[in-house]
Design a protein around this nucleic acid. Structure first.
Lengths: 224, 224
DNA sequence: CGTAGTTTTGAGTGCGTTCAAGAGATGTGG
DNA sequence: CCACATCTCTTGAACGCACTCAAAACTACG
């Protein structure tokens, strides 16, 4: 069950020195720490800041009135979340683990007047976002449960895995419901598919959020 | 742009003389005409230009090696297509009807140095793109065939319909396969669902690409 | 006309779902 | 530390929606 804690909202000190990230002046960068399951922003909130993930993992979600949810994306370090549409956030963002983000003014995304180098980086991030979303369309629209699950594990392995000789180990903070809502499946199907991958000797499950990939090629091929 | 449930804003008014280049020689606006089924760019091509649709309808597609297709978006007048990732097009673009586009240099998307006003518009278009894609995720991942088809028709009606008193008429250039690949269904399912909507008296099919919506509310409700 | 492509309709199947229950984690208070 | 409550994950059984396969109806075009 997802907990919405009203006391989580915007406990943010006023922007001290927002401005020069150019030249990597780290001291001037404003950051914000998040606890696991803490909310960063909600759908419909007015956009003042966009966030660059530096630690931990965030989750971007959209919810239908009847409760159906779709996880749009997971935000890993290096990712930027909070792109506005018509001045409003278009999805909800929560931390899946303790996390830290760099806070950027939305002004620097929209205009390059103040900080051209940061602006350029943010625009590039938006373009990357479009590209990766296009890939995800194929996943949601045209792939089977097996292919979706294998894709998910494969990508996560590429991004966060550490080599164990022939094998690769990685952990992830999202639970089965998060994965299901990301892939357009049910928790039961995700669980069953994981079990199938385990019984096929493609992976080992240390626990429900820790995986060792035994056969990268087979997993990659199954991702199709 | 993605056909989405969010009501669209800021569609460009007059097509031919695009108001983008304020204070510049209008004759300098470069356009390109396309015949039906003509290709504009392919996945993997190097991006030099991005395109603003002024007439007709474009189709953005991604294809898997085994032939499975996903239509990412349909480009209607006012939409911008060709956002690059790592300098390459990430999808294939074809005209569904005779069409015309305004050709913009990718430089003006990436940097505001040359034409700040155009740059601002292109960045805004990219942000709208992200927002609309997020809506489409919900469609692909969480909606039934009925809901998908009703959404599709409902949005198309909103965007291109002309009022016939209580009813609304509109036409569209995409065939059943295009619609199926857009919604993550098969042609048979799209066809069956259209038939169901017809028998339920929500729509009338003048021909396979011309619809009269008889009950907007029921259609909208079915879109969920 | 005939041929090729698209759309519709029919019949049957299967994948992922729903519903249900048990197993495994996690957390809290005594 | 255990007992208890709660949540998550897994597994089982059965269903149903959308799929596949197949063929007929309709369109477009030479």
């Amino acid at each position: 069950m997802y907990i919405s804690n009203a006391s989580d909202v915007e406990t943010l000190p006023a922007p001290t020195t927002c401005g020069a990230l150019r030249g990597q002046n780290v001291n001037a960068v404003q950051t914000r720490a998040l606890k696991a399951s803490q909310n960063l922003f909600r759908e419909g909130d007015e956009v003042r800041h966009i966030y660059e993930v530096t630690h931990g993992v965030l989750r971007l979600t959209k919810v239908l009135e009847d409760g159906r949810r779709q996880v749009i994306a997971f935000g890993y370090p290096g990712d930027i979340v909070g792109f506005p549409q018509d001045g409003l956030y278009h999805a909800e963002c929560d931390a899946l683990s303790t996390a830290e983000v760099v806070v950027h003014s939305v002004t620097d995304l929209v205009s390059g007047d103040r900080n051209p180098e940061l602006h350029r980086r943010l625009v590039q991030a938006a373009l990357r976002e479009i590209g990766s979303m296009q890939d995800h369309f194929m996943m949601l629209g045209r792939k089977s449960a097996r292919e979706k699950t294998a894709s998910f594990l494969s990508v996560l392995m590429e991004r966060t895995g550490t080599s164990l000789g022939a094998y690769t180990h990685f952990e992830f903070p999202m639970n089965r419901a998060d994965i299901a809502d990301f892939l357009g499946l049910t928790v039961e199907t995700v669980s069953r598919t994981m079990t199938m991958l385990r019984k096929s000797k493609l992976i080992t499950l240390e626990n429900s959020k820790s995986v060792i990939v035994l056969d990268q090629k087979a997993l990659h091929d199954m991702a199709a």
